[in-house]
């Protein structure tokens, strides 16, 4: 990473959903739900970017917008210099082998009517339809072996596997086309803790081996800390902080990040009792009608009048930390 040119470069990405107000007539203009509202970030080759934030802050929508699985309202997604959002459907299809995705519910992400051999082979057959059948079989066995599933299981069906095994199969499916980026959408939140560790370590091993980049979405901060090089904190579709992982946990910049970090449970009852959790007032505002200026100001303990007027830009605070706040 001497001359770091980013693998993926997202600028001002916006995803708005149309919501029909209650009792709307067919001709009334729909309300706009701003799920992702102007997100910028770069992803370097071989890097892991963690994305955290509470439910409904746009983490998954952001991932799906990068993969063009939901339509974007505006912005650019530069992938190795190509703007994915302006490509045609077929142009996009050619890039899909370079980026793969792993999903939250391991069992639901596998078609129950297909054997795992068919499931894992599908991306390969889609992007390289002329691969001979014997080679497909070899590749499937190889990649299943890599993720720790016995390759003689290829004729089994997803419901015959446990959650952790299903997630490994999901990873195998993502790996078979040798992508450069894997987007993991809460890949471990449906698994129990010991299996979580196994899956995360598997992901990290594979990343090192293949030089992959990962975008790792989670709401478990300790998991994100373990795997990420950098962490991006989302709040109501806005980036409030991007920082080197260690720096974020040692010295969180934004008041929202501080509140998040203070809420991480400490596995020591004494220390946990002494730890002061920074509780936020009020609920998450509706993304249909976000607050003016800084979106966090309604719950921010440090809010000042300027916060209601001007949206704070992300500014560099040194040590690889960027924070969007007027006050800090």
């Amino acid at each position: 990473m001497n001359a770091p040119s980013p693998l993926l470069s997202v600028r001002d990405l916006k995803v708005w959903f149309d919501i029909k107000p209650k009792g709307a007539m067919p001709w009334t203009a729909p309300d706009k739900l701003k799920a992702v509202d102007g997100v910028d970030f770069d992803l370097m080759p071989g890097e892991t970017l963690g994305i955290v934030g509470e439910s409904g802050c746009g983490k998954s929508t952001l991932a799906r917008a990068i993969m063009r699985m939901v339509p974007s309202e505006g912005g650019t997604v530069l992938w190795l210099g190509d703007d994915l959002l302006s490509l045609t459907k077929n142009g996009m299809r050619a890039h899909r082998k370079e980026m793969q995705m792993i999903f939250q519910d391991p069992l639901a992400s596998l078609n129950p009517r297909m054997t795992i051999g068919q499931i894992v082979a599908e991306p390969l057959k889609t992007h390289f339809p002329n691969t001979p059948a014997s080679e497909v079989k070899d590749r499937v066995r190889e990649v299943l072996d890599r993720v720790g599933i016995l390759p003689n299981m290829i004729n089994r069906y997803p419901h015959e596997f446990s959650g952790g095994q299903c997630q490994r199969i999901g990873i195998a499916r993502a790996l078979i086309v040798k992508p450069q980026l894997i987007i993991c959408d809460e890949p471990v939140s449906a698994l129990d803790v010991s299996i979580q560790a196994q899956v995360i370590n598997l992901l990290m091993d594979i990343q090192e081996e293949m030089g992959l980049s990962l975008i790792f979405i989670a709401h478990d901060l300790s998991v994100v800390k373990h795997i990420s090089t950098r962490v991006m904190v989302l709040y109501l579709g806005n980036v409030v902080e991007i920082s080197e992982s260690d720096q974020l946990y040692r010295a969180p910049g934004h008041p929202y990040t501080q509140a998040l970090i203070s809420a991480v449970p400490i596995p020591d009852p004494k220390a946990h009792a002494e730890n002061e959790v920074m509780l936020l007032d009020a609920d998450l505002p509706s993304p249909l009608d976000p607050p003016s200026g800084c979106v966090f100001r309604t719950r921010c303990p440090l809010a000042e009048p300027v916060c209601a007027e001007i949206k704070p830009p992300l500014t560099d605070r040194g040590k690889g930390q960027q924070v969007a706040c007027h006050v800090i």
Partner: peptide, 14 residues
């Protein structure tokens, strides 16, 4: 809306 269909879309299956 099941994830395996999303996975197929993300993979680029027609």
């Amino acid at each position: 809306n099941k994830e395996f269909v999303e996975a197929a879309i993300a993979t680029g299956v027609s």
